[in-house]
Amino acid sequence: MKKTLAVAIISFQEGLRQRVLYGILIFALFMMSAAVLLSGLFMRDIAKITIDFCLAAISIGGLLVPFFLAVNQLARDIERRTIFTLLCRAISRRQYILGKFSGLALLTVTIVAILSLSAALAIWTSNVIYGDYFFQNLNIQALAVAVGMSLLGVLMFTAVVVLWSCITTSSFLVTLLAIATYLIGHTTEDLVRFMASPPPGVEISPMVQHSVTAALYIFPNLAAFDLKLAAAHGLMISGGEILFLLTYGIGYTVAALCLAIFFFQRRDLT
């Protein structure tokens, strides 16, 4: 546990060294100002527009970690040979992967926390400027759940990116696989729903049906963790759905990490 924590702290510090948090702060300032200013251009749903921007900013901020840090952390460690320094100090490959993931997760949590605070400030400013009338549907609980689920979705996605990093040596390939995973994760659910009741005249071959269903089980269902629209309209999801999402998200993340450890233990690092 101590060794895993040590690797996690090193990964976190490496993220900080890349000036990630400064970038995030500038990005937060920009997005939140845009949220307050742009919402004034609309007619009625001012709260919805402000929340749309804030939640999108939180998602984008969270996604920076898997897309820009996770994709090349492992590859860089191998390239710079720093991985051997760690593995020589009686840190197992399992501890290394878990530590790497924990560091990235810690960085994601920090980023999401900073962006959430800025979002709260933007919503409050918008409320002060435009008045309570346009914020009647504001539901803090729904917002908190949306942010929490967005964070869980990003962590799940980061775990998959760590898995890809353990399978392939090329960070370019990892980036491509990460993009593909993200796109599949956000569209498969809609495709399955479309196939369940296709419009008249459209025939779907069983092979396509099986492939899409298989994709739903293999790839993370990221769309399920996107509760931004509901939160923007002040709608709260049921307790049952929250429980399903928590179980699915944690289960998938753990499974992806186990698979990553499995592949990494068998990987030739020389």
């Binding site: 609309f42 007619m43 527009i49 749309d52 999108a56 998602s59 796109l183 956000h186 569209t187 629209l229």
Partner: peptide
């Protein structure tokens, strides 16, 4: 809708701004 991925809210906002 599918192409908007997880940014449906801001895609709709942008298109609304365009309509206005």
């Amino acid at each position: 809708k599918v192409g908007s991925l997880e940014f449906k809210g801001i895609v709709a906002d942008y298109l609304m701004l365009e309509a206005m």
